[in-house]
Computed example of a mutant assay.
Amino acid sequence: DKEMMQRIREKSILQAQESAKEAMEAKASARREDQKYTLNVMMKIEEEERKRIEDMKENERIKATKELETWKEHQRKAEEHKIIQREEKLYQQEKQIEEGRKKLKHKGLTRNSVSRNLATKGRNSEIIFFEKLKEDSIPAPRSVGSIKINFTPRVFPTALRESQVAEEEEWLHKQAEARRAMNTDIPELCDLKEEEKNPEWLKDKGNKLFATENYLAAINAYNLAIRLNNKIPLLYLNRAACHLKLKNLHKAIEDSSKALELLTPPVADNANARMKAHVRRGTAFCQLELYVEGLQDYEAALKIDPSNKIVQNDAERIRNIIQGTELKS
């Protein structure tokens, strides 16, 4: 009947579930056994690898120790050889000195015996023989030797312990760049003398032209000096001043920014140049009516030199212009 079929079906389902559960447990147990076996194998492999690496390290240490001992033994033998040579040399020198003393002693005895014999002869013959004996008693000159001294090659005359290697290397690098630049075919250099190809000479020439208000000629001198050496910040700073005079405001800003870029790191020696660069760039910004940017440069200049009254007054005027309390001039 139907109830019997239902019970048989439920019993079959339970048996199937029990079989599936046992199969899953067996499978899980087998998987755990496999993982355990795999883990043991991996641990064994890692242990063997670690032991191999330790053996290699130990072999290298033993090898290095043997090499060090061999080197020490070689150094010891070399020192012993030097000591033996030095002692032999001293022995030879002492032997030569002793032989010289014996010769001098023998000559002194000979001179005394001859002088006693000369006492019975005439006065003239005594003087002649005495002069000869005097010449014979003069010892022979010493042997000539030479000592070799090797000095470390140095570009600068100062001693290495008293020099600043980093600054010297930077100076040499700049000089090399300047020489490479001067060796290039620049048409403006053809008619110049050798001393006129020096960036420092051109900078001084530009400063003199600026003092006479010949700003275009000063810019040309600074341009040529920058082509010879573009790592001198004062060239850009002075050219910025010329551009300000000629109202080339954007060029003045560029040159002032380039000068500030080269004036690094900020130290006490370049503080004055950095302040001028900020002031000139700030002036160019203000003349372009960019007062906020100009005020930033003036405040940076005041941080460098807080006691500068002129910069303080100009900064105060720019603040008033920004706040609208003073007319633009």
Rank of each mutant, 00 (worst) to 15 (best):
115 S>T: 03
148 K>E: 05
68 L>H: 02
147 I>N: 08
102 K>Y: 04
45 I>P: 11
105 K>Q: 06
111 R>I: 01
62 I>Y: 05
110 T>P: 12
44 K>E: 15
127 I>D: 01
144 V>S: 08
143 S>C: 02
155 V>W: 12
39 L>Q: 13
38 T>N: 15
82 K>W: 10
47 E>W: 00
96 Q>P: 05
147 I>Y: 06
121 K>C: 06
151 F>S: 10
95 K>F: 02
69 E>W: 08
87 E>G: 12
165 V>Q: 14
159 A>V: 06
115 S>K: 13
163 S>I: 02
135 E>C: 12
156 F>E: 05
161 R>L: 13
84 I>T: 11
106 H>Y: 01
53 I>H: 06
161 R>Q: 15
139 P>L: 00
132 K>I: 09
150 N>A: 06
132 K>R: 14
95 K>M: 03
49 E>T: 08
65 T>L: 03
44 K>C: 13
87 E>F: 11
130 F>D: 10
61 R>C: 03
51 K>V: 15
111 R>Q: 13
64 A>Q: 04
155 V>Q: 07
52 R>Y: 03
115 S>M: 04
58 E>A: 12
58 E>L: 08
160 L>P: 05
148 K>R: 12
118 L>D: 00
83 I>P: 03
124 N>H: 10
42 M>Q: 15
46 E>D: 05
90 L>T: 15
45 I>H: 04
40 N>V: 07
106 H>C: 04
163 S>M: 03
150 N>Y: 09
104 L>V: 10
61 R>L: 10
137 S>G: 08
53 I>M: 10
95 K>N: 07
127 I>Y: 00
89 K>R: 15
73 E>T: 12
139 P>V: 01
